[in-house]
Simulated assay, not measured.
Amino acid sequence: MINVTKPAQEQVRMYFEGKEITPIRIFLNSAGCGGPSLAMALDEKKDTDAVFTFDEVEYIMDQNLLEKAGPVDIDFAGTGFRLESALKPAAGCKGCSGGTCGS
């Protein structure tokens, strides 16, 4: 399941003001030392996507990724969006410095 807070919905609606509304994809941005993280981008729906609609905007995510991520919460606070899920940091990383992980 994807949950979008009212503040996040308002920011998305302001972005689309005067524009054609297109789906917003939630995707795996990285799985490095800091652990996996999710990001958002405009995209087209695929047959393998789960689709959730909030305030006439479709939020799409690959079903397999959604199963791994668990519920995804999208919020807007301060100056940006925050995506939270059950994805955990990569095991074995003891810290990152200068773009590399300690072992």
Rank of each mutant, 00 (worst) to 15 (best):
L65S: 03
P71G: 12
N64R: 13
Y59H: 07
D62C: 05
L42T: 03
A50I: 10
T53N: 15
I74C: 10
A41S: 14
V57T: 13
D47E: 15
E56S: 14
D43S: 11
E44L: 09
K68Q: 08
G70E: 10
P71D: 04
E67L: 06
F52T: 09
G32R: 05
Q63H: 11
G35H: 11
A50R: 04
V51N: 15
V57Q: 03
D43M: 00
T53V: 15
G34S: 12
L42W: 09
A69M: 00
D55W: 08
G34P: 10
C33N: 12
L42F: 14
A69I: 05
G32P: 00
E44T: 14
D43L: 02
A69F: 00
G70S: 08
V51I: 14
G35N: 10
L42V: 09
D47P: 11
M40R: 07
Q63S: 15
G70I: 02
D55N: 15
A39M: 04
D49I: 08
D73S: 07
F52K: 10
G35I: 11
A50K: 03
F52V: 10
G35Y: 07
G34R: 07
D75F: 06
P71N: 06
Y59W: 13
A39V: 09
D49G: 04
Y59R: 11
L38S: 04
V72A: 02
E58Y: 03
E58D: 13
M40P: 07
E44P: 08
S37K: 00
G35F: 12
E67S: 05
A41P: 01
K46W: 00
A41N: 05
